[in-house]
Structures are given as structure tokens and as C-alpha cells.
């Protein structure tokens, strides 16, 4: 099967700024890929390269086998930019109809996508009466119109409330089931809610991770946090037994590698009545993201607390 996006060793330099360095990324038909990265990591630059607005200073990109920006490639791609302000004087329906015509989409498509993004009621109102989330959904509607084979969405969920965000991911799942590939950018893993097939992380223009979320979690191998609440007066002996740090006068907290988890848990259960409660927390998505985004430099903070009681 031919890849929809095939980027090979792409570098992009703006005068002094190296926006992208040696990035290789594939997107298969029907695949959803999330592109993550801090501000200025190069996400928008990669989108502009895929659209053919700018040419890479090194490497190559092809869109379904075509050169980016060629007529054939533009028929494949649909784009939702980071920021767009539609003409205030037009109604929502007119905006979508405009882009539908430019893409040569069928007339009925307009109503269908307005329905999908839940803008049917507001469709005949002027865009300047739309709320931020409605404008974002209108932008999504114009991207969806015309059944593109690749959706490029730059921070599509910014400005959406949690419900709309969930609805957005359902919509994305729906279009990708019908074979449309989705490449979307976002600032963090938690925002993504583990909804995409694959996650690619850019750090200062370099691709530092690319794989399914579970694989990235495995790769990061972040320590698991275990917090033990000791019975009254037993905190000292619990601490002496399992190590770690005392976080207050009743609890002990320790971090362990995934492989050590069961051994430590069985040791804790061996302490019997000295332990009142155990809490085990796997690394959060944000921690996994921070790991890749900072290249593991950041140490997980733990504090020692002196117990004066």
C-alpha cells in the first residue's frame, strides 16, 4: 500500500533558524497520527512543507506519490490552519460552500459536513456571531468537505470544550474508518486522550519519538510511583523496611522501575497491619510526553520531609 505522506530526511532552515532537522515520517491510508511538540518545535512548519507552501532545504516529501503543492497532491489534502478568520460578512454555510466549490465537492456535501460538526442550526448565521468553538468547528467543516484522503489539522482541539473535544475525536475516528488519514498537531499527550493510532514527538525540530502510545510508554520506562500510608506510629518502621522517602508523618513514597513493581508490592503486603493503604500510579501521559520533550533530562522531584511530631 502506498503511503499518503512520505517524508524522508526532511530539513527546513529559515535563515538562522533550523526549524526541522532530518525528519522522516510516514502516514498510511486511514491512519491517525498525532504530532506533538512544544511551541516552536516545528509542527506548523512540517504542515506547510506537506502542503507545498515551502520547499524543504534538504530531504524529500511525497503526498500519495505526488509532489507537495501539485494539483494532484492538493486534491488529496485538506488543511485546517492554526489560526483562520473567515470573512465576517458570510454565513457559515456560505463559507463551507465556497471551499466545497474550490475543491469540486458535491453540493450535498456541504449540508453533510455541517451536520457532522453540529453547526446546522447556526449555519445560516453570519460568521461574526459565532463563538470561538463554533469557528473552530466551521474550520473543521471546510477541511472535511470533499472527502479528502489526508486531513492536516493544526491544533484542531484548541478552544474546544471537553465535550466538543470528545466529539471531535469521534469524528476523526469516523473519517479514518472510511480510509482518510489524519495528521494532527497538539501540545500535549493528555490533550490527545490517547485517541490516535500513533504519536510522533518533535523536539527542537527533531523527531524524538514515533510509535503507538503504549510503545512510547514502554520506551520511556518511567518509574512507577508507590505511596504507602502507614498505620499510626508505624511510619518509621515502614520507611526502614521499604525505603523511599517520607512525604508526611504518615506516608512513604517511592519510585520503582516497572520490573520491580511486583517485588516491592509483595514486600509491602508482608508488612501486614503496619500498612493502612497502598496507592500505585503509572506515569501519566503528561510525564511520558515531558520525558520525550525534554529528552529525559528532567528528574522526577521528590522531597524529604522532616517529621517533628
Amino acid at each position: 500500500m502506498t503511503e499518503i505522506v512520505k517524508a524522508r530526511n526532511v530539513s527546513m532552515k529559515f535563515k538562522a533558524v533550523e526549524a526541522l532537522t532530518d525528519v522522516s515520517l510516514d502516514v498510511s491510508p486511514g491512519e491517525q497520527v498525532a504530532l506533538l511538540g512544544h511551541n516552536g518545535a516545528g509542527k506548523t512548519t512540517l504542515f506547510r512543507l506537506i502542503l507545498g507552501f515551502i520547499k524543504p532545504t534538504a530531504g524529500s516529501i511525497s503526498i500519495a506519490g505526488f509532489a507537495p503543492g501539485s494539483d494532484a497532491a492538493r486534491r488529496v489534502v485538506s488543511y485546517l490552519p492554526e489560526q483562520v478568520a473567515f470573512p465576517k460578512m458570510l454565513t457559515g454555510r456560505e463559507v463551507v460552500r465556497f471551499y466545497a466549490r474550490l475543491k469540486g465537492a458535491a453540493r450535498e456535501d456541504v449540508q453533510a459536513v455541517l451536520d457532522k460538526v453540529e453547526l446546522v442550526e447556526a449555519a445560516d448565521r453570519r460568521v461574526d456571531t459565532f463563538s470561538k468553538g463554533m469557528r473552530q468547528r466551521l474550520g473543521l467543516a471546510q477541511a472535511l468537505v470533499g472527502n479528502p484522503r489526508l486531513l492536516l489539522l493544526d491544533e484542531p482541539t484548541s478552544g474546544l470544550d471537553p465535550l466538543s473535544r470528545q466529539h471531535f475525536y469521534e469524528l476523526i475516528a469516523d473519517v479514518s474508518r472510511r480510509g482518510c488519514s489524519v495528521l494532527l498537531s497538539s501540545h500535549g499527550l493528555s490533550e490527545l486522550e490517547a485517541k490516535t493510532d500513533r504519536v510522533a514527538i518533535l523536539r527542537k525540530g527533531r523527531l524524538v519519538a514515533d510509535g503507538p502510545l503504549a510503545e512510547l510508554q514502554h520506551q520511556a520506562d518511567l518509574p512507577i510511583r508507590i505511596r504507602v500510608r502507614a498505620a499510626a506510629g508505624a511510619v518509621g518502621s515502614v520507611h526502614a523496611e521499604i525505603g523511599g522517602g517520607r512525604i508526611n508523618c504518615a506516608s512513604v513514597e517511592l519510585y520503582c522501575a516497572r520490573g520491580d513493581k511486583m517485588r516491592i508490592l509483595s514486600k509491602i503486603s508482608g508488612l501486614g497491619t503496619q500498612v493502612e493503604d497502598v496507592d500505585v500510579a503509572s506515569p501519566t501521559l503528561d510525564e511520558v510526553y515531558r520525558y520525550f520533550s525534554n529528552n529525559g533530562i528532567e528528574q522526577i522531584q521528590r522531597g524529604e520531609i522532616q517529621c517533628t511530631a
Binding site: F53, V77, Y79, A85, Y99
Partner: peptide, 13 residues
């Protein structure tokens, strides 16, 4: 300025 040129130029026109 408004970002709409990107949308127009991303379409096959």
C-alpha cells in the same frame, strides 16, 4: 493576515 489564503491555496486552484 487572516489565514484564509492558506486555505484557498491548499485547494486545487
Amino acid at each position: 493576515d487572516r489565514g484564509t489564503l492558506q486555505l484557498v491555496l491548499a485547494s486545487p486552484v
